[in-house]
């Protein structure tokens, strides 16, 4: 895989909508980070760093443009 960049989530922009998590073909992203807002909403975390192929699908799907491939 030439492009080994991985998704990095900007929690300032992220709305915890779960689209990235639901769209990742390998389910690499889990919704489990609960210390971001006062509602304890579950924010995404790239749990499967090594399984992630860097396909960019999550980044393209994110409506908030909160994911950068780095």
């Amino acid at each position: 895989m030439a492009d080994k960049k991985k998704p990095v989530i900007d929690y300032e922009l992220c709305m915890a909508c779960g689209i990235c998590s639901g769209d990742c073909p390998l389910s690499c992203i889990a919704l489990r980070k609960t210390d971001i807002d006062r509602y304890q909403k579950a924010y995404p975390v790239l749990d499967e760093y090594y399984r992630c192929t860097g396909c960019t699908r999550c980044a393209k799907a994110c409506p908030m443009e909160a994911i950068r491939m780095m």
Binding site: A16, I19, T34
Partner: peptide, 14 residues
């Protein structure tokens, strides 16, 4: 008793 929020896919309300 709530430990975390739960929301449906694509939900920003939760």
């Amino acid at each position: 008793h709530e430990t975390k929020k739960y929301h449906c896919y694509s939900c920003v309300i939760g």
